[in-house]
Design a protein around this nucleic acid. Structure first.
Lengths: 128, 128
DNA sequence: ATTGTTGTACTGCTCACTTAATACAATAAC
DNA sequence: GTTATTGTATTAAGTGAGCAGTACAACAAT
């Protein structure tokens, strides 16, 4: 399939972001097994080493755990998941606000643009 | 000085973004001369080649023009400047909305967070 | 004419990221 | 017990970004 890894960030970081998204928005269910390193590498069109690096990093942060030869599993710690969701959202928002202020946009002008744009991207409106 | 260039994007792209911001929000005035490649390199703590690459790219897009040995100048095309501002804003917003939807945030939840965060980032510098 | 500053170009080097190709230990499945 | 799959480790190679250093042509200032 080979997703679009094209911003100039390292692929393993983009994988971490993508996988974290899948966990916090429920695409990947807590406690479930994730596909093997080799399968994920095939699915995303990258090297197994790159997947391994991303997953090992997420494991270090507690988002996953390994059972030696059965595979990897999503954490069952719902608190960690919702904390991660909140933290990721705040990071993105801070960064975004800085960018908007850097362009000289005001809060109201920004909200209007959001209203105009929201929903035009995929329509996949989850959670509220 | 040496700004923090540390997201994993190429520095020359971050420079382009920063310089475009300065033009669009009025920190750099249309028609004014910009500092020389070497001066900018010193100010931002990067290599002159990297600055050169960023400025050449912006020139290709019409945001600057060169007079051979006098230096580089900001475009005087106000229409181009405001168009660029609009285009940059829309890019960032699209990208931001995708991220928020990817995290499973709803529009209202998002607006609340913006209200809570707006204004807490002033004075600080952008980029990360 | 000389000097200094400008943009520009080129080469070589380093480093992080990625890929490739194996290899191995553990264990579930048979 | 054998086999297949799992995570993991290792080594080698390729690529692109960035840095360092140098050089040159154009022109303003003197």
């Amino acid at each position: 399939m080979s997703y679009e890894f094209d911003n100039h960030a390292p692929i393993y970081l983009q994988l971490i972001e993508l996988f974290n998204q899948k966990i916090v928005n429920g695409s990947w269910t807590a406690g479930d097994r994730v596909a093997s390193v080799r399968e994920l590498a095939l699915e995303f069109g990258v090297n197994p080493n790159t997947v391994q690096r991303a997953l090992a990093e997420m494991e270090r942060e507690g988002m996953m755990y390994t059972e030696r030869t059965s595979g990897r599993f999503i954490t069952q710690d719902q608190q960690l998941i919702s904390d991660t969701r909140q933290q990721l959202a705040e990071e993105k928002i801070d960064q975004f606000i800085n960018q908007m202020q850097g362009l000289g946009l005001g809060r109201d002008e920004l909200k209007q643009l959001i209203d105009r744009k929201w929903g035009k991207n995929n329509g996949a409106d989850r959670n509220q």
